[in-house]
């Protein structure tokens, strides 16, 4: 079951086409990466998903029904450019934002207390937002995003501006929510984070969907049949037309398998030639490499 389905979504701003026939599905209870360089159209897509704007063409389904304004209460959105009322007190602000998402005053209050306890920040209630440090504000922002227990959580660069301790804190919360069955769209251009936590991604470039699928599938599709062989003793440089040598440094060979050759065949060849092997693994491209290659 998909929490979200986009079919041929188009969004134009005057002459410019910001989203160009984009289709992808966001699976339920997974962490989904919405990737793309700056200005690719990520924010335009997010605004359509959050029902802030409407698509000019195409359709969006939320849990199998056409997306409408009423779904807003089931979505939590943390924009990249964070924003809170600077002069408003933390407690008041969270209460207001939670009630706007449809929570009753009583529910909102008890949930705020829970979060304050969890992050041990109860004494911030009466502080104004402008009195908090940037990291503290991020925590408040995060609470505001998730307080209404959304079914779909959209996080735009959630770790930017966070120190490692707080980044871990937020990451653990995100993983916990995924376990609780919340679907998460994670928008970023930081690829190492994507590899850590995303299971599926879509890559947007120039308003178009250029890459879509699970992280492992995409890596398989983009692999270059490179293998790393760790060995002891003398080097063997004859690969019997099975592979090409890329490099040989510090007891590590990097070789590229030729078309149609299985890795076992190469391994057997190496063993047969008495190379003392202590390691053999395939080198898969990092998402970062795939990202750069695809975007270029």
């Amino acid at each position: 079951m998909n929490i979200l389905e986009l079919n041929n979504v188009v969004k134009r701003y005057q002459q410019k086409i910001a989203v160009d026939h984009v289709s992808f599905d966001v699976p339920e209870s997974k962490i989904f990466g919405l990737l793309g360089p700056n200005g690719a159209g990520k924010t335009s897509i997010i605004r359509i998903i959050t029902a802030i704007t409407k698509a000019d063409e195409g359709s969006v389904f939320f849990s199998g029904v056409p997306l409408m304004a009423a779904h807003r209460e089931q979505i939590g959105y943390m924009p990249e450019e964070r924003g809170l009322y600077k002069k408003m007190k933390v407690g008041e602000q969270l209460l207001y934002l939670a009630r706007l998402k449809g929570l009753s005053k009583k529910d909102a209050k008890s949930r705020i207390d829970l979060w304050f306890e969890k992050f041990q920040i109860g004494d911030w209630t009466n502080k104004k937002v402008e009195e908090l440090s940037k990291g503290m504000q991020q925590k408040i922002q995060f609470i505001a995003t998730v307080i209404h227990h959304p079914k779909l959580l959209i996080l735009d660069e959630p770790f930017s501006g966070l120190d490692p301790v707080n980044a871990n804190l937020i990451r653990d919360e995100i993983l916990l929510m995924k376990q609780e069955g919340i679907s998460i769209i994670f928008s970023t251009h930081r690829m190492e984070q994507v590899e850590q936590i995303c299971e599926e991604i879509v890559l947007i470039n120039n308003g178009k969907n250029v890459l879509n699928g699970t992280v492992s599938d995409i890596k398989q599709q983009h692999k270059e049949h490179l293998f790393e062989v760790e060995y002891l003793g003398d080097t063997l440089l004859d690969f019997d037309n099975l592979a090409e040598l890329q490099s040989n440094e510090n007891g590590k060979l990097i070789v590229k398998l030729k078309e149609g050759i299985e890795s076992n065949k190469l391994l057997r060849h190496l063993l047969d030639n008495n190379l003392q092997i202590i390691g053999f693994r395939e080198i898969l491209p990092s998402l970062n490499e795939i990202f750069i290659k695809t975007v270029q």
């Binding site: 807003r72 979505i75 450019e81 924003g83 706007l100």
Partner: peptide, 13 residues
Amino acid sequence: TSRIVEIIISSVK
């Protein structure tokens, strides 16, 4: 300018 508006309009029109 404080960008709170984007959060508010993800809740209301």
